[in-house]
Design a protein around this nucleic acid. Structure first.
Length: 414
DNA sequence: TCTGGGGTCCTAGGACCC
DNA sequence: TCTGGGGTCCTAGGACCC
């Protein structure tokens, strides 16, 4: 049997690297990219890390330190990052290996019967750098969990790491909170049981692991021992849920304002649903106040649709009725959202004999709106109920241009 | 003043059925 | 005093990821 290896390609500080691609002045200076609404730090250049900026730190808390170290702060420009991500994936595809796109900045590949793994790792890293301009780290090992560890070491070690010999030593140096799949809660459980390193975990009693960390923990333990339990998902299974939610730029108290925002989110969610050729049967709405304040209120309501649908008007109707159930006067709300679930493919339609609606006309209307928004930019055609002024719409004060995805914002070469 | 958004998976517990 | 057993399905909640 030829040995199988998993290759994890992870873009270094991806969002910052995307910004640097189009603005070389950002090279070698501290840079951070912020989450939606300019809320938290979600990507840091090495210089920003060295300056003591923490991942996930709220911007308003980090602001003084950011200023002191002369850090450039940018709003996140997801349109740009998604486009660069596609370019990286294109390069990786050219290796002709089974591949899983794990996230916007990470992909796994699988290799079998390769002699020169180190050479492959270098080739991947250099091609992505030369063809796209994004630095990546490449980690290779016999399971996905180990490849994650290899990748982390790669970043400190010239960008590539093949984990083949001396794995025990590497596991001894890997601390529990740094493991893929171990978060704050499981770290507590493991530490309380005197398990401090990946090596301790790999040698733990399987029964204890299963009982205390469920089957998920047991799988991770097996993976650390070199037994692959987490398979490569080459084709993304059709998703099971679709969420659209955002914090408002300022707290909202009135039902009518929140309805506006919810209408906009519902439109967006339905648009995504249709683009994936799915119908949904359940729409859930949630609403919340600031959870960092006293008197936190949050509530949600699920509304079943009479027939599976992707029609914005029908789903909006359900969403609004849900919102009315959870809305209480007298709170300052900061966020709402809609979650669509219970999907079925849109080629099997179970009609409702009695609703007296002309499905074909409705579908044509939705198709037309989608086409206008595809060709002329999102939100060219929208429901007036989602508001014109949109005072709740999110803050992005430090947004860079959509360099690669909008004709009017393409960089000019002098 | 200001604290992201969008996913997945697993389990426990309740409802319901025979 | 004694109060089935076992299966399935659904939901909520908790954990994790990037």
């Amino acid at each position: 049997m030829t040995p199988v290896y998993y290759v994890l390609v992870d873009c270094n500080t991806f969002y910052v690297s995307c910004e640097r691609l189009f603005n070389p002045r950002l090279n070698r200076v501290p840079v951070v990219v912020l989450s939606n609404n300019d809320g938290c730090v979600v990507a840091r250049s090495p210089e920003a890390k060295a300056g003591g900026i923490k991942m996930g730190e709220p911007y308003f808390k980090a602001e003084r330190l950011l200023k002191r170290i002369g850090c450039v702060s940018l709003s996140s420009n997801y349109t740009l990052y998604a486009d660069i991500s596609l370019r990286v994936v294109d390069v990786l595809r050219q290796f002709g290996l089974p591949m899983e796109i794990y996230s916007i900045d990470e992909s796994f590949l699988r290799v079998e019967g390769y002699d020169n793994l180190k050479g492959l790792a270098h080739e991947i890293k250099e091609k992505v750098w030369r063809w796209v301009g994004i630095p990546v780290g490449v980690g290779i090992a016999s399971t996905k969990c180990l490849a994650k560890i290899a990748n982390k070491r790669a970043k400190k070690d010239g960008g590539v790491c093949v984990l083949q010999d001396g794995i025990d030593d590497v596991l001894r140096e890997t601390l529990i909170p740094d493991l893929w799949g171990i978060g704050a809660q499981l770290t507590k459980v493991l530490m309380a049981h005197n398990i401090f390193t990946a090596y301790d975990f790999a040698r733990a009693d399987p029964k204890w692991v299963k009982d205390n960390l469920t089957i998920v923990g047991l799988r991770m333990m097996m993976e650390l021992n070199g037994a692959p339990c987490i398979k490569l998902e080459q084709v993304r299974e059709t998703r099971k849920a679709l969420t659209c939610s955002k914090s408002f730029s300022q707290p909202l108290c009135e039902l009518s304002d929140i309805e506006e925002a919810l209408t906009a989110y519902t439109q967006r969610a339905c648009e995504k649903l249709r683009s994936e050729r799915q119908l949904c049967s359940l729409a859930s709405v949630f609403l919340e106040t600031n959870r960092f304040r006293t008197g936190y209120y949050n509530n949600s309501c699920s509304v079943r649709l009479p027939v599976p649908t992707a029609n914005t008007i029908d789903i909006l109707h359900a969403a609004k009725s849900g919102l009315q159930k959870v809305f209480r006067q007298g709170h300052e709300y900061i966020k709402c959202g809609i979650i669509l679930t219970d999907f079925s493919p849109n080629d099997i339609i179970q009609g409702d004999m009695f609703d007296g609606k002309d499905q074909a006309t409705d579908n044509r209307l939705m198709e037309t709106i989608d086409r206008i928004n595809r060709e002329w930019g999102s939100n060219t055609a929208y429901l007036a109920a989602s508001g014109i002024k949109r005072e709740w719409s999110m803050k992005r004060k430090m947004l860079t241009p959509r360099f690669t995805s909008c004709w009017s914002e393409i960089p000019v070469a002098h």
